[in-house]
Amino acid sequence: MLTIIITIVFSIILAFVLGLALGFFQKKFHVERDPKIDEVRAALPGANCGGCGFPGCDGYAEAVATGRAATNKCTAGGASTTEAVSKLMGVDAAGEDLVSVLLCQGTREVALSKGEYVGIQTCRAAKLSTGSVKACTWGCQGLGDCVVVCKFDALAMGEDGLPHVDFDNCTGCGMCAEECPQRLFTMVPRDRKGSVVLCSNRNVLKANVIKTCKVGCIKCEICVKSCPEKCISMVNGIPVTEYSKCTSCGVCVQKCPTKCYKMLETDVMGKKKVPVMA
């Protein structure tokens, strides 16, 4: 009986002493943590996507609060987050709300495949082993690495064999652009107006792409010649629009013989959702 009582008393005393010591030491060795870190952290989306280049939202919050990072690095949160973080830090920073656009239209019907690919079902493996699943070396591999890496449910494989961006969900974090072995995604501001070439084939031989893809850029340069604003130029075999001059007149879209020139505001962003594979 005595043993039990001693045990109980001893345990209680021990727990009490240790608890007291812990509490005391926590107060004594309390480290002042900048409350700004927590405030900034609360303003971030918390997806830990790493799009900012820091290890997670906590890392970025600390970097911002200590002045080591700019306030507009959180692409996932977009303009609203940049605004909130900038307000907390007391700086002005115009945020850009980006979305991801796929620069390839090579669906199963229009782009020739080299053959049936039965290897490891990732774009990266396919690209490594075959050079390209499609006859076009620059085209979309269509195995959905981008869909896997997207943390915001903004990408889905369409039945046509291409990933489709859901612009409502896309936050412009840029993970898909980084993951794609073909570098087919480009980040554009959500409110950008003007024309864009949805093709990345950089084979500068004229009309060479016709053999492999019906909607590829054939380097005819009709767009360059016909643009009334003279805002299109060929860069590395692909026509590039200069958006400060583009008036969205639509001449290039009409003239393009393979229809790879599209209007961003109507054809790309305003596009109807395509049926998605289950």
């Binding site: 001693i6 045990t7 001893f10 345990s11 021990l14 812990l22 926590q26 004594k28 060795f29």
Partner: peptide, 27 residues
């Protein structure tokens, strides 16, 4: 004469000790 309590006591003491050291190092 509480040798039989050593498991309980040692676990408690080690855990708190590490915690204390952590506070100290942090500061």
């Amino acid at each position: 004469q509480l040798q039989f309590l050593q498991i309980l006591v040692f676990i408690l003491v080690i855990a708190s000790l590490v915690q204390l050291v952590e506070f100290y190092l942090k500061k």
